[in-house]
Amino acid sequence: MADVLFWIDQLGMALALAGGILSVIGSLGVLRFPDLYTRLHAASITDTGAATLMLFGLALMAGFSQEALKLLIAWAFVMLTSPTASHALANAAWSSGQKPKLGAFSLMSGKREPAEADTASGEKGGAP
């Protein structure tokens, strides 16, 4: 029985570590991607994913207790608020005139291929 508990603990830690690594990957995406919308997708997907992995991992470690319930509540709130905030942000950015970068671009330089016409509104979203 103690053996099972030990492995459950290890599994929880591994899940937490996986969540940590996922959130690093997401942050790298936020740093490297070329425009707001791609960054938004990197941030929102990995945020909910990392929260799920990490909080469930910790809940496994906590066992059947009040802490596990609190972790699940925190998870529920993150799952409720994080996608909503991302949605509201994308909505506001789109309707204030931020255009996504379309077409082929080089990921390494972050710049678009010169053949495309420049339609990206870039930094300033003007009043609609």
């Binding site: 608020t81 909503t84 949605h87 509201a88 309707s95």
Partner: peptide, 21 residues
């Protein structure tokens, strides 16, 4: 007028749930 014309269905539904919590 702009604030009212935009679509904020998701925001309103989630807020309705969150405020009492």
């Amino acid at each position: 007028a702009l604030a009212e014309s935009d679509h904020h269905v998701v925001l309103r539904s989630v807020a309705k749930l969150l405020i009492p919590i």
